[in-house]
């Protein structure tokens, strides 16, 4: 009986170890991390879209806050494309690595657009900044991202 308990305890213990190791592997996986960063970008884009389609009024503070998050997360994601991190469930296209310079330019364009968006203080400049920012996402996704699997 005590042997059974000990076995059970060690089983539980090792399963925690396995889960922990799996979690650690997941958090260290660049494909997973950049995906998380991009999800945050997408979430932060929603309040900006709401302003663009006039669901909510223009608010420079909301714009600045979300554009700043987008910029930070884009920079973070940009550093998470090491050679060989494509394939599997990742939507990253091989062109990211075969055309690294083009990809880096597209990523930097997006960061520049987010920087410009964070500095927008009036509604007149907002729509133009929005088109540039969204357009930069689109240009990169068109060339370097696979359709959703």
């Amino acid at each position: 009986m005590s042997l059974g308990k000990r076995t059970l305890a060690s089983l539980v213990g090792s399963s925690f170890l396995v889960a922990g190791a799996w979690g650690a592997a997941l958090t260290a996986d660049p494909a997973h991390l950049r995906h998380e960063a991009m999800e945050t970008v997408q979430e932060s884009f929603k309040p900006l879209r709401a302003i663009a389609v006039k669901e909510t009024p223009f608010d420079a503070a909301v714009v600045k806050k979300n554009a700043t998050t987008i910029l930070e997360k884009l920079k973070e994601a940009h550093g998470l494309f090491p050679e060989g991190s494509g394939g599997g469930d990742s939507r990253a296209k091989a062109e990211i690595w075969s055309d690294r310079a083009g990809f880096d330019t597209a990523m930097k364009n997006a960061q520049a657009a987010a920087t410009a968006m964070a500095a927008v203080t009036d509604e007149a400049a907002y729509m133009a900044a929005m088109k540039t920012l969204g357009g930069s996402c689109k240009a990169c996704h068109d060339k370097y991202r696979l359709p959703k699997q």
Partner: peptide, 15 residues
């Protein structure tokens, strides 16, 4: 499309 953040409309030639 993605100019307003509709990101499903930009890959695989859909843009």
């Amino acid at each position: 499309g993605e100019e307003l953040g509709y990101e499903d409309l930009s890959s695989g030639g859909m843009a």
